[in-house]
Design a binder for these strands. Structure first.
Lengths: 226, 226
DNA sequence: AGTTCACAAATGATATCACATAGATTAGTA
DNA sequence: TACTAATCTATGTGATATCATTTGTGAACT
């Protein structure tokens, strides 16, 4: 029995007209993001196909997409894995997140409305709840929703896909970080971000965004890698 | 006869072990980048397959990758096109380029060597030559090589793929811009960038990088769209 | 016992086939 | 002539089959 049987790829719900390839893409992306697929795991097309009850065809397309986004590495042997994290790469990714997200936040600020801020507030409340239940997966997804909601208000926004690509590269590693920690404390600066949004204060928004990224879960990684 | 026959997708040379899908990806990417495929053109899997003498399978994978990078748009009807440019999107893309590339340049500066600067110098000379021959395709490719070379010197660099994705979204539009202009003047700040690199001057590097992006070919687009 | 070579199983890549859907075209009617 | 309906074609999607390459295993030899 191939060890691909051990693969744990959570199911997600889809609208009925989603194509298989798209579903595979979303499932794999989610699995990588929440760290279900351990970095370094060897993946095979047929293994994934078996694990998801599909033919290799849609799998290949999804995997290729993820490879294009640097979420899956294809080695010269044609073997595929989720890339392992190194300290240098980690620092670069965090630094890139800061550059991208402060830029996106600044661009979005003029278009933000109180309604959206309220929605973000709600998301942050949900995060507090997820934290109480130590539900890291939900916490991760909610955190992304929180930030994405801000960056998406810009009518001609083009940076969200780019930012998500970076999230996807950091994501799998965060799970490792948390596994090393017994208890998980939420260190975010969402309250500050919300306050900055309400007062339409650019400088404060940028500062709190940067802090949120640098001092969030991400920062703990440095300890693990050092 | 389907109009996909009219497709003009320049051939590129590959090492013998490149996979078909990879070749298709590179060819399409190049074609989009230099503007051979006009934005708005309807693409079909089978049309591309015929045009490139392959089965739809490797085409699909390549197209999916480009779709993930926002270089090809897949409409709800499943129809595919190269997205048309709008003024709003254009400004966002330019602004994103500035954010990304100044960040990457700053990160690379500590790792730059005189050897690399010399190579960049050579590339810039080649650009002058391409300009003399009004060879825009070569000019575009060389310009990218110039910038990529700088950003790539960082040992743990992660931003180049992201930057290239943005280039790919701006690329197809640049050709349109130039078509509207009778004569093409090279407006670049590469000499300033090189000088800033040689003196290891961060502020000057960032400033000239931003100018290069804002006042380069890109800027002319604003006139066309306004 | 360790190394090497050969053979078998697994895997990736691509073409082909089958099916469902969306577009285009033609026929029929008002 | 204009509009609608039915048919036909083109297209995307996914499964299967085939081929080449790679990996893994075991036997033979040193």
């Amino acid at each position: 029995m191939p060890d691909s049987q051990k693969l744990n790829i959570p199911e997600i719900s889809f609208s009925e007209d989603t194509t298989d390839q798209e579903a595979v893409y979303a499932r794999l992306r989610h699995a990588i993001m929440v760290g279900t697929i351990e970095p370094g795991t060897q993946l095979t097309m047929r293994g994934l196909a078996d694990a998801m009850g599909l033919s290799p065809t849609p799998i290949r397309e999804a995997v290729r997409r993820l490879n294009s986004e640097n979420a899956i590495e294809i080695l010269p042997n044609r073997r595929m894995t989720v890339p392992k994290m190194t300290l240098g790469r980690f620092e670069e990714l965090v630094s890139l997140r800061v550059a991208l997200e402060t830029h996106a936040a600044e661009r979005s600020l003029p278009y933000i409305s109180d309604i959206v801020i309220d929605k973000m507030q709600t998301l942050d409340d949900d995060m507090d709840q997820a934290l109480a239940m130590q539900d890291l997966d939900t916490l991760t997804i909610l955190n992304q929703k929180f930030h994405r909601m801000l960056y998406s208000v810009h009518p001609n926004q083009v940076s969200v896909p780019v930012i998500e690509s970076v999230w996807l590269q950091i994501g799998p590693f965060q799970r490792q970080v948390v596994k090393g920690v017994h208890e998980f404390y939420k260190i975010d600066h969402h309250k500050e971000i919300l306050a900055a949004l309400r007062s339409r204060n650019v400088a404060s928004l940028l500062a709190s965004t940067e802090c949120d990224i640098r001092e969030g879960i991400s920062e703990n990684g440095k300890l693990l890698l050092a």
